[in-house]
């Protein structure tokens, strides 16, 4: 009886040290694999994050967090899937989180663009009335110069407005869900979008369409 007990304890302790050893090995292997991924993909990930956030520091932070998250949830990675795709999915989640946290509510009391566009009766001011754009509006998306102008105009928007536009399109979520995550009312959200649209449109009109 005593022998059996002794044997049991021994085997338990043996197993314990084995398991510890194999988990150490496992984590060593994981970090080697992830290191290879850093070599292979960190520039792609960084370029993408930089393009999305337009901030060097933010992009670096997000890429770093992506790899740390990859280490932590490595067991969820299936060997069959493509590591690049997996890493991009993690990064895109992080980019979404970044925009959600950088969105500050409540809405700034910025009436400027509304007063500039509309008169006291809320109708278009005579010189701001939309008209057909003179510059060719066809094939805009193939025009790299237009995309540069669009980019410039996006960056001239107040930060919160730009963030709102990103959130509108980022994950193609339903409006109600976006607002729930931001904890603001739908009215609040589309009013911000309305103002940003007016401002963006004005900027593009001056710098592109009616140039």
């Amino acid at each position: 009886m005593r022998e059996v007990l002794f044997f049991d304890q021994k085997s338990i302790s043996l197993c314990y040290s084995n398991c510890l050893e194999s988990s150490k090995m496992e984590s060593k292997r994981t970090s080697e694999i992830i290191k290879d991924w850093v070599e292979l993909y960190s520039d792609n990930l960084y370029s993408w994050a930089l393009y999305k956030t337009s901030s060097k520091e933010t992009a670096e932070d997000l890429v770093q967090e992506t790899f740390l998250a990859a280490v932590q949830s490595f067991d969820k990675f299936e060997a069959k899937s493509n590591p690049k795709t997996w890493l991009f999915a993690i990064l895109n989640n992080k980019i979404g989180d970044f925009f959600r946290t950088s969105f500050r509510s409540p809405i700034e009391d910025n009436q400027g663009i509304l007063d500039r566009m509309f008169d006291k009766d809320s109708h278009w001011r005579a010189d701001e009335k939309p008209q057909e754009w003179t510059n060719d509006a066809e094939n805009l998306l193939d025009n790299s110069e237009f995309l540069i102008t669009l980019n410039d105009c996006m960056h001239r928007l107040p930060e919160n407005w730009r963030v709102a536009i990103h959130l509108k399109f980022l994950e193609e979520k339903k409006g109600e869900l976006i607002c729930q995550e931001l904890q603001i009312t739908p009215t609040n959200f589309w009013q911000i979008l309305h103002r940003s649209k007016l401002q963006l449109r004005k900027c593009l009109e001056m710098n592109w369409f009616n140039e």
Partner: peptide, 17 residues
């Protein structure tokens, strides 16, 4: 998207791993 190389970042992440 335009690709940008960032070697210091690579080094930094590897050292954290």
């Amino acid at each position: 998207v335009p690709q940008t190389e960032n070697k210091p970042l690579k080094k930094k992440i590897i050292s954290k791993l």
